[in-house]
Amino acid sequence: MKRICVFSGSNPGNHAEYEQAANRLGDALVTHGMDLVYGGASVGLMGRVADKVLSAGGQAIGVMPRGLFRRELAHTGLTEFHEVETMHERKALMASLSDAFISLPGGLGTYEELFEAACWSQIGIHKKPIGLLNVRGFYNPLIDMLKHTVREGFMREENLGLLVVESDPERLVEGLLNYVPIEQGQKWVELANKG
């Protein structure tokens, strides 16, 4: 595992713990010799992780669509910066450059990137580990929603294991390194139709 894609907010959030966790994640990546792949911004938690990786001597690779340059403020000090046309191209390139994914707290964009990576894993497009950095229990409501989804019959229980959840950045990186992909059996639809 050489590169980890980090999804995160372009805002820092309302609590200092979020920025502290972003900094600690940057340290953990460099400690393990991993490059950062992310959305390319200089602001919010995105910028904090990139700054920490770079200041610790690591490599940071940004990917950003041209239309977001003003709103997200592209980071000008990255190791590599890839300019793309669309959000779809951004996500596809970030995924192809990465061996794993980590989601820090963030907004709708972060959720959307996280769920796409998880969906792709569920349907077998990739077997890359996906981590949630659950700072301040930020992802607890999401985890509860996924458990509710299982109870209501819209997701297999074993697919909860697609996500490695930790509140500590170092433990999360170690969890990704030790991740064993879930073997997907028959398609959910096939199983449902056999009943």
Rank of each mutant, 00 (worst) to 15 (best):
M1F: 12
K2R: 14
K2V: 04
K2P: 01
I4Q: 08
C5H: 12
C5S: 15
C5K: 05
V6H: 05
G13N: 06
A16G: 05
E17Y: 11
Y18C: 03
E19N: 07
R24L: 10
L25Q: 07
L25C: 11
G26A: 06
A28C: 06
H32V: 00
G33M: 10
D35Y: 01
L36D: 11
L36H: 07
V37Y: 07
V37T: 07
Y38E: 04
G44Y: 06
L45A: 09
M46P: 01
V49W: 09
A50N: 08
D51V: 02
L54S: 10
A56M: 12
L68N: 03
H75T: 03
H75Y: 02
G77K: 14
H88D: 11
R90A: 05
L93F: 12
L93R: 09
M94F: 12
M94L: 15
S98G: 07
D99F: 10
I102T: 08
I102D: 01
L104Y: 08
P105M: 12
T110Y: 09
E112K: 10
E112D: 14
L114C: 02
L114T: 11
L114M: 06
F115C: 11
F115G: 08
A117S: 11
C119L: 09
C119T: 15
W120A: 04
W120R: 04
Q122G: 09
I123F: 03
I123G: 07
I125N: 02
H126W: 10
H126K: 10
K128C: 06
I130L: 13
G131L: 05
G131K: 05
L132H: 06
V135C: 11
L142M: 15
L146W: 12
K147V: 12
G153H: 09
G153F: 08
F154T: 02
R156I: 00
R156F: 06
E157W: 03
E157I: 06
E157Y: 00
N159C: 03
V164R: 13
V165E: 03
V165A: 02
E166W: 07
D168N: 15
E170W: 04
R171T: 04
V173D: 06
E174M: 09
N178D: 13
Y179R: 04
V180P: 00
Q184E: 15
Q184H: 15
L191T: 14
L191R: 14
N193D: 13
K194V: 13
K194Y: 08
